[in-house]
Design a protein around this nucleic acid. Structure first.
Lengths: 330, 330
DNA sequence: TTGAAAGCGCTAACAC
DNA sequence: GTGTTAGCGCTTTCAA
């Protein structure tokens, strides 16, 4: 049997104690002017004494806004996503928004029900991080006119801010080409949002062509060592992200293939642990904080401006960070 | 100038469209029995057609509960915390709770204001993860009778679930002693919650004594290489957590001190990347999912049972995972 | 400068 | 089975 939660003081209690009306208390609490210093002081004293704290649900109900934003993402265990969430939460709280986090784990059915929960909470907007679900979810949000921003993945139909995938992949391929590699493979991440995955794959082929390098479909590989044996094996890889790159290196070395001795590896994201000298992951770094800052800004703008303003897309420039996982072809 | 958000359909709209009263709609939506199949179908049709979704704020207001829980943590960039949040979110959502995440970044003033926001939202309970703030915050929560559970750190005064720090440290020290190490240092993490930090430090000394090893206060070190030079230097370290252990290894190797060649390192937590063969971190692993599961259970129990039930403490057993960062003393 | 009154969208008693 | 009613705690006109 359930014990009812303790009753918290309400605006009415404060009004009673300070001998004024609810509206006056409301005015004091919200800092609207037009209250005499004397009353104001009495009210503040009562607020203090009672430990009064306004009830967001009641305020939301009348204001029809919640100052809540939702963040939907695939996997908090992916360091890049986790860092992004952390930064978004910080930027949002600076603008007085509270963040609801939904980790979908890449399961579409979960994703739908989690987003449903966000919508029941009447979040003012939603940020979709590099999310794994199908675009149907996004379409639904747009149809319901819920302000949404895609972070770190691209769409024509909604606000988004992302790194320039093509430029990033080009940086990686150019780096490898410069090191003399000609047989370059691409390793994808199945958990990655489909559009971004495809964009990076396409950019990869295009870059190979630009550098006059052979394109081989059998060199689009999973993150294990199987594709890296045989006489004609690739000598370098561009991974779709750092998380995948790290797992790939693990698999390669377990199979006796040295990195960068036998195979050079370039990642994508720029997560912290890639910088540890033991990993020394050469990577295409995304400007994480800039991404988060702009995402929040875009979302809040959209919340303020409503659904009818045209979508805004922002591309940020990636940066190549050369470390020890790449080397000139032997 | 701000555009008002689109008006969402309310229970009244559904009632009007299906020609019944609000209460009947409410009964259908919530699945309370006692509605004829015919009306029920009509209502469901209207819900569907209108795209009706109940407004959580209104429900919260009348029910005096939100099905919201807050999670307060120091740093999402710490993989152990991120994994914990992910799991807590999953367990919570299975129990129909939505999670509000607050990353305090270890700044006490931020912590207070973030928790304030949680309380305005009237979260039903709060989980404090391994949090960096002072215990004053916890005291305040308890005083306000807000259900709270401490995860991965210990307190007498509230519900908590944590790994057995003493046993964990003992596992680490015993392992090093067995490998022949006698000069063993301890490296702390300044961002760690103070109680846990102290508990592990005390456990460390106690374990040394138990094994007849020398205790030297100057061997409680920061996570850099400075303490590991000189003739009488320690040959092994127990780090307060994996994150610190990894940074320590980085600093050590940058200074030309090999791990495990010159110094053996044991971590604490069992984060994923420690398992990569390049890191091969020997560590005291915490049962992460069990921790999260019990935390949610404890919190929901507390929410149901109210403030007066006595606090419940749970200790979970850690497990030593031996990998390559430790070796017999040369 | 202050107060009274009318909701916001919903649930929960209770009537019918 | 279904409808009526009375709030939940707040903001927001509007009057005084």
């Amino acid at each position: 049997m359930t014990v009812p939660p303790p009753r918290r003081p309400t605006i009415k209690d404060v009004a009673a104690r300070s001998g004024v009306s609810k509206s006056t208390v409301s005015n004091v609490v919200r800092g609207t002017g037009g209250v005499s210093e004397a009353t104001s002081a009495r009210v503040r004293e009562a607020v203090e004494a009672l430990g009064y704290r306004p009830n967001a649900a009641a305020r939301n109900l009348v204001q029809r806004r919640t100052n809540l934003i939702g963040v939907v993402l695939g996997d908090l265990a992916n360091a890049f996503d986790a860092e992004l969430v952390k930064r978004i939460e910080r930027h949002a709280s600076e603008r007085d928004y509270t963040t609801l986090v939904c980790n979908t784990g890449g399961r579409p059915e979960l994703e739908a029900s989690r987003i449903e929960a966000l919508l029941e909470q009447r979040v003012d907007g939603i940020a979709l991080l590099d999310f794994t679900g199908d675009r149907g979810v996004l379409a639904q949000l747009l149809a319901e006119r819920v302000p949404a921003v895609m972070v770190s993945c691209w769409t024509e139909y909604a606000d988004c801010v992302a790194v320039d995938d093509q430029e990033g992949i080009e940086l990686a391929v150019a780096h490898l080409a410069e090191l003399g590699h000609t047989r370059i493979a691409h390793v994808q991440d199945p958990i990655m949002e489909a559009g971004t995955r495809r964009a990076r794959a396409v950019a990869f082929e295009r870059s190979l062509l630009r550098h006059g390098l052979p394109v081989r479909t059998e060199w689009t590989l999973p993150a294990d060592a199987a594709g890296f044996v045989g006489p004609d094996r690739p000598t370098a890889v561009v991974a779709a992200n750092d998380y995948t790159a790290l797992r790939l290196i693990e698999g390669l070395e377990a199979a006796g293939i040295a990195v960068p001795g036998d195979v050079s590896v370039v990642g994508f994201d720029g997560i912290e642990i890639g910088a540890l000298s033991r990993m020394a992951l050469t990577t295409v770094a995304q400007p994480g904080d800039e991404l988060a800052r702009r995402a929040v800004e875009l979302l809040i703008d959209r919340i303020g401006r409503g659904h009818d303003a045209p979508p805004e897309q922002q591309r940020l420039a990636p940066r190549l960070v050369v470390r020890g996982s790449t080397r000139a072809r032997g």
